[in-house]
């Protein structure tokens, strides 16, 4: 995945809570076996409504999604992350995320930023007032900045390091393959196999 250190871009306010992954990408888009082409499916049902925020030309090219609480709940489909990235998003900011979605995002280099609900709403209001407002998400400094504002966010050191280095998780684990072998040798003999 691409390394993420700091990103500056324009933001889209999505004033809805509980945006589940079925809304981010409906199941009909999950039939493909490739990893590309999912941007067309992003919010595809909602995008049919001309009033939907992503259809507002003022937000064209925005790369930061500022959403309501509990973003990415529901299905484990990583296609939701791929769709957001392929559409052009690098960051999603929300007060709370579905656990699996947040995990999937950090595996792919889409940065999920948790900010207090009141701060998220303030940022939404700011970009509604001025869609050209530039927002900086600084992973190194753990800070989101816009206008004269600067708000810190929390992320664990390990995930931050992995994102900043753009490291492949599998490669990291394989460095410890010997530990896995040692563990396997101690597993209980009654544990099932599928053959």
């Amino acid at each position: 995945m691409d390394a993420f250190t700091t990103h500056t871009g324009r933001a889209v306010p999505l004033r809805r809570g509980n945006v589940d992954t079925d809304q981010i990408i409906p199941a009909v888009w999950l039939k493909q076996v490739s990893r590309t082409g999912f941007e067309k499916g992003l919010f595809s049902a909602w995008r049919e409504d001309p009033a939907f925020v992503l259809n507002n030309p003022a937000y064209e090219g925005a790369s930061i999604l500022v959403a309501g609480p509990d973003f990415g709940t529901g299905s484990s489909r990583e296609h939701a992350v791929w769709a957001l990235q392929q559409y052009g998003f690098r960051v999603v900011i929300a007060a709370r995320f579905g656990d699996i979605f947040r995990n999937n995002s950090t595996k792919m280099g889409l940065l999920p930023v948790v900010l207090p609900a009141a701060v998220v709403e303030a940022l939404q209001s700011a970009v509604e007032a001025d869609p050209s407002l530039e927002v900086t998400v600084d992973l190194e400094g753990r800070q989101v900045r816009w206008g004269g504002e600067a708000v810190g966010f929390e992320i664990d050191d390990y995930t931050r390091w992995r994102l900043m280095e753009g490291l492949d998780d599998i490669g990291l684990t394989l460095r410890n393959a010997d530990d896995v072998t040692v563990y396997e040798n101690g597993r209980q003999p009654w544990l099932p196999t599928t053959v």
């Binding site: 484990s76 995990n103 999937n104 595996k107 998780d169 990291l172 396997e184």
Partner: peptide, 19 residues
Amino acid sequence: AFGIGTSEVEHVLATQTLP
């Protein structure tokens, strides 16, 4: 028992573990 995304599916296939 818990659900995972496709990157983690690949991780488990390759390593039989998850961080």
